[in-house]
Amino acid sequence: MTGQGTIQSPRQGWSSPQGAAALAAPSPAGKRRAFDGRALLGFFLPVGIALLWEAAVHFGLAQGRLVPPPSRIAATLWALARTGELWTHASATLWRILAGFVIGAGAGIAVGALSGSSETLRRVLDPTLQALRAIPSIAWVPLFILWLGIFEASKVALIAVGVFFPVYLGIAGAILSVDRKLVEVGRVFRLSRAKLARRILLPAVLPEAVIALRSGLGLGFMFVVAAEFMGASEGLGYLLVDGQQMGKPDQILAAIIAFALLGKAADSLLVFGTRPLVRWQDVARERL
């Protein structure tokens, strides 16, 4: 952390949103800094293990039937990509996540805003939502299949439920934790309720809202797998199940890698897209 970040946090009591912003928008200062060779150290372990295993299989020390060597996984991934199969599956999965995320996050933001800004509504809504949250979301699967059928609707619904709760909690919590002293500044300048929301509450909750959306998106990726296990004819989750039933561990690992790449890409896209909103919070800080 450089001196800049430390100047005002203790004085203004903004330490938590500031920390929040570090997560919301990983430091752009990294770009300005000279490239740090130590970052490469992180590659040492995975690449080393992959090379060792590759060598072990290559020289016949291991069969690599259940744990295929990296080269075979890459070949499988390449084959899937070449036939276009990978894109079919990936786009099916991404579409489900997108639909579920939009519905779940939209509802989470709306309900979170209501519950965060009105004490009465919070007393009405929050206990029920907390109770629902305690249910493992997978437990909804049979019900969703009965209600919505076995096709897309039930999958999207499951993902939406998974996304909803972290977003709801994050938004409501962010609104509740807005610095009362800044709200008072709004009162001194005689802002109307709408203006207070737009000029003070909204910018104050944005960093935490971005984090809420990011954890919602992460859960979206988690639940899409569960949803596709429910019975799908396409999607990366289908590739996983198919790989298990056909005894093709390379296909399972290829699908897992595709998941990892897509998940990271979607998260980066979200961070990148929301960065202008939280630019003021860019804290020069070591990235984890």
């Binding site: 005002q8 004085r11 203004q12 009591g13 903004w14 002293k181 800044l182 008072e184 500044v185 009162r187 001194v188 300048f189 005689r190 000029r199 003070i200 910018p203 104050a204 944005l206 003021w280 919070q281």
Partner: peptide, 27 residues
Amino acid sequence: PHPAVGIVFQEPRLLPWLTVADNVAFG
């Protein structure tokens, strides 16, 4: 709160998402 009455608090209470100039222009 009255439009002709201004207050400066013990802490600056600047809005951290506004630049210095925008903070001054807030009202």
